[in-house]
Computed example of a mutant assay.
Amino acid sequence: MVQWWQCRQPRLRGLVLAGGRSQRMQTDKGQLRYHGLEQREHAAQLLAAVCTDVHVSCRPDQVAELPAGLLPLSDRFLELGPLGGILSALQLDPNAAWLVVACDLPFLSEATLQHLVHNRNSAKVATAFQSPQNEFPEPLITIWEPRSYGTLLRFLGLGYSCPRKALINSDIELLAAPDPTELRNVNTPEEAAVARQELGLGQ
């Protein structure tokens, strides 16, 4: 039976996190190509299948270089890493939920995002996948509900800028990923080379 709160869920918007400095990769991770498109474009396409619209979180200096068709969302909370992008989205539309995906997840599939959305619990602060490495939630493949805005600001006020810490200490829906290998981040040139091989792209 469908619960009343499931019928009144806030609309779901998408956010690609692509504003990092990519220091370990030594080049912009969002511009890498594993699927014929820049990774920030590919992630936006995945999100477009399950969200009403999609924005790309980026630094102000990245806006001009975004591929045509992508909607930029400049960070309004600077020097906070991923948390700054999430808070900027929630500030843009505090009445929407935001499905946030990092740009360094070349193995992520639409099916996994569909699973997350299908099992979304909008009565909680967020719906997240459990990390394949430990029992903690993955904050950068997560649906952040409108109520998460106050939660994240409260943690920021306490000096915590880690979104995972906020999830660990909040009432969330924690899911097992259908295929945990899809949650693998690619952060270094060596990891990118391995990813290309696994995706059948060679070096």
Rank of each mutant, 00 (worst) to 15 (best):
residue 103 C to E: 12
residue 94 P to A: 10
residue 78 L to Y: 13
residue 100 V to F: 02
residue 88 S to C: 04
residue 79 E to R: 13
residue 74 S to W: 05
residue 73 L to G: 07
residue 117 V to Y: 02
residue 76 R to W: 07
residue 83 L to T: 02
residue 70 L to H: 02
residue 91 Q to V: 13
residue 111 A to P: 02
residue 114 Q to K: 14
residue 85 G to I: 00
residue 106 P to L: 02
residue 90 L to T: 04
residue 113 L to V: 07
residue 75 D to N: 12
residue 68 A to Y: 06
residue 97 A to Y: 08
residue 101 V to P: 09
residue 91 Q to C: 12
residue 73 L to K: 08
residue 75 D to W: 03
residue 74 S to H: 09
residue 120 R to K: 09
residue 101 V to K: 01
residue 100 V to D: 00
residue 81 G to Q: 04
residue 94 P to S: 14
residue 86 I to R: 03
residue 86 I to G: 06
residue 96 A to I: 03
residue 68 A to C: 10
residue 81 G to C: 04
residue 72 P to C: 00
residue 86 I to W: 08
residue 69 G to T: 08
residue 68 A to G: 13
residue 74 S to V: 15
residue 103 C to N: 10
residue 113 L to K: 10
residue 90 L to V: 02
residue 87 L to P: 07
residue 86 I to V: 13
residue 70 L to W: 00
residue 78 L to S: 13
residue 112 T to F: 05
residue 97 A to G: 13
residue 118 H to M: 11
residue 94 P to Q: 12
residue 85 G to Q: 02
residue 91 Q to D: 14
residue 97 A to D: 08
residue 106 P to T: 03
residue 93 D to N: 15
residue 114 Q to D: 08
residue 119 N to D: 10
residue 66 L to N: 12
residue 101 V to Q: 14
residue 91 Q to N: 12
residue 66 L to H: 11
residue 82 P to E: 06
residue 67 P to T: 04
residue 113 L to P: 10
residue 110 E to G: 14
residue 110 E to A: 15
residue 73 L to V: 01
residue 104 D to G: 07
residue 73 L to N: 08
residue 70 L to S: 03
residue 94 P to K: 06
residue 114 Q to H: 12
residue 103 C to V: 09
residue 105 L to R: 11
residue 79 E to Q: 14
residue 101 V to S: 06
residue 69 G to F: 10
residue 86 I to C: 09
residue 109 S to N: 08
residue 111 A to Y: 00
residue 120 R to W: 15
residue 115 H to K: 01
residue 88 S to L: 01
residue 118 H to E: 11
residue 105 L to T: 07
residue 101 V to L: 15
residue 99 L to K: 01
residue 68 A to S: 15
residue 76 R to S: 12
residue 86 I to N: 05
residue 88 S to N: 06
residue 93 D to Q: 14
residue 82 P to G: 05
residue 79 E to W: 05
residue 106 P to V: 02
residue 104 D to Q: 06
residue 101 V to F: 00
residue 119 N to I: 01
residue 106 P to C: 06
residue 70 L to C: 04
residue 83 L to I: 01
residue 69 G to A: 08
residue 67 P to M: 06
residue 75 D to T: 13
residue 112 T to M: 13
residue 103 C to L: 00
residue 108 L to W: 07
residue 105 L to K: 14
residue 108 L to S: 05
residue 112 T to G: 08
residue 83 L to A: 03
residue 71 L to K: 15
residue 89 A to R: 00
residue 116 L to Q: 04
residue 94 P to W: 05
residue 89 A to M: 03
residue 78 L to G: 09
residue 115 H to T: 07
residue 103 C to Q: 11
residue 81 G to K: 04
residue 96 A to E: 04
residue 88 S to M: 01
residue 85 G to D: 01
residue 75 D to G: 11
residue 113 L to W: 11
residue 74 S to L: 01
residue 120 R to P: 10
residue 113 L to Q: 07
residue 106 P to G: 06
residue 85 G to H: 00
residue 112 T to C: 13
residue 117 V to K: 02
residue 82 P to R: 02
residue 91 Q to E: 15
residue 99 L to G: 03
residue 83 L to P: 03
residue 82 P to N: 11
residue 71 L to R: 14
residue 87 L to K: 05
residue 107 F to W: 11
residue 102 A to H: 10
residue 97 A to R: 14
residue 109 S to K: 12
residue 104 D to W: 03
residue 69 G to C: 08
residue 97 A to P: 06
residue 85 G to P: 04
residue 93 D to R: 15
residue 110 E to M: 11
residue 96 A to Q: 04
residue 108 L to K: 08
residue 109 S to R: 14
residue 115 H to D: 13
residue 107 F to Q: 05
